[in-house]
Design a protein around this nucleic acid. Sequence first.
DNA 1: CGTTTCATGTAAGTCGTTACATGATTCC
DNA 2: GGAATCATGTAACGACTTACATGAAACG
Lengths: 190, 190
Amino acid sequence: MVGFPLNATAASLLGFLHEGPMTGWDLVALAQRRIGNFWSLTQSQVYRELAAMAGAGLVEAGERGRRDRRPYAITAAGRDAFAAWIDQEPGSETIRFPLLLTVAFGRHLPPDRLAMFLARHRAVHAERLAGYERLQAEAAAAGNHADPFALATLAFGLAHERAVLGWFDGLPVVLGAEATQAADDPGVEG
Amino acid sequence: MVGFPLNATAASLLGFLHEGPMTGWDLVALAQRRIGNFWSLTQSQVYRELAAMAGAGLVEAGERGRRDRRPYAITAAGRDAFAAWIDQEPGSETIRFPLLLTVAFGRHLPPDRLAMFLARHRAVHAERLAGYERLQAEAAAAGNHADPFALATLAFGLAHERAVLGWFDGLPVVLGAEATQAADDPGVEG
DNA sequence: CGTTTCATGTAAGTCGTTACATGATTCC
DNA sequence: GGAATCATGTAACGACTTACATGAAACG
């Protein structure tokens, strides 16, 4: 008896609802904070999944509150569906990194323009890393009270951003400068 | 005038077609090798984008060859569209890492099960890293003939996979064993 | 001759993004 | 009163996946 087929995004919402009833708005904010690092979701998706799950009986909408806030609570069926979901082998990673496409086809771009793109993206990643480091410092200050699971996902963000910055810094200047000559080259294939 | 709106996947196909006419099949294989590392695409997408771009005049289908192979060649309009695409600021990175969702909600899983997931995924990443290292060794053996742009994207793959493995190895055994105080299980060990 | 691999394509459905519409509440 | 923010939702589209259908050629 397969229940309602949960996708990872919907399942995450159920995961959060274990902590208590929440509105779509709250869920968007919480997901951003807790899993936004490695899982993106939009407002639209959240409301859509909540509506679908309400239809399937996995969550229940409560009374509308102050600002039309409508809290959703997880049901017993929702807990079951979540438990079944999380017991499955997680799928494999998906990365889509448009900047790398630009680099891969970099011979078609003026070197200074590629250099500019690289510099701008590097700055974004540096800032993101700084944010993660602040979070880590806060967690350290809080002592043992931090959730080890949250720390583990934060550690991933740190490792990833450090790797990305290291990659930026290890890039040969070549890519942003030498390619002036390479632009004539028909491209070398191995 | 705005040309045909290119998405990154279609643009990549045009990028490859700069190297000469190719069939959908060839493009799938080539993309897998050259950008599969940070950009996924499926056969279906490739044929669809080729058909759409042919309709828009960005590529031209040639005569069907031996095995019904139909080569596509980039047109002048295609080169223009590609040039316009690559000149744009690349969008930001998207990562979707289901295993991290499992970790984030790890308190809802038996520790040994989480440990098993972690171990299996670690093995996949270790193998992928080994593959990248082989490619790097080959490139080094080939000397200066390697494309610096291809080397740069390979360097990203290496950096990323090393970071991921480092993350696995830095995870406290706690995550896989905490709840069961008796740690027969080495948890996540490489 | 039969199996595998090559090769092209369609169909159906899910997922995700963007943009918009609506209105309540707070804050100045 | 007016602007900003909170909050919910819809509409429309575009992107991606999975599964399937079809057949040619190579290989044994």
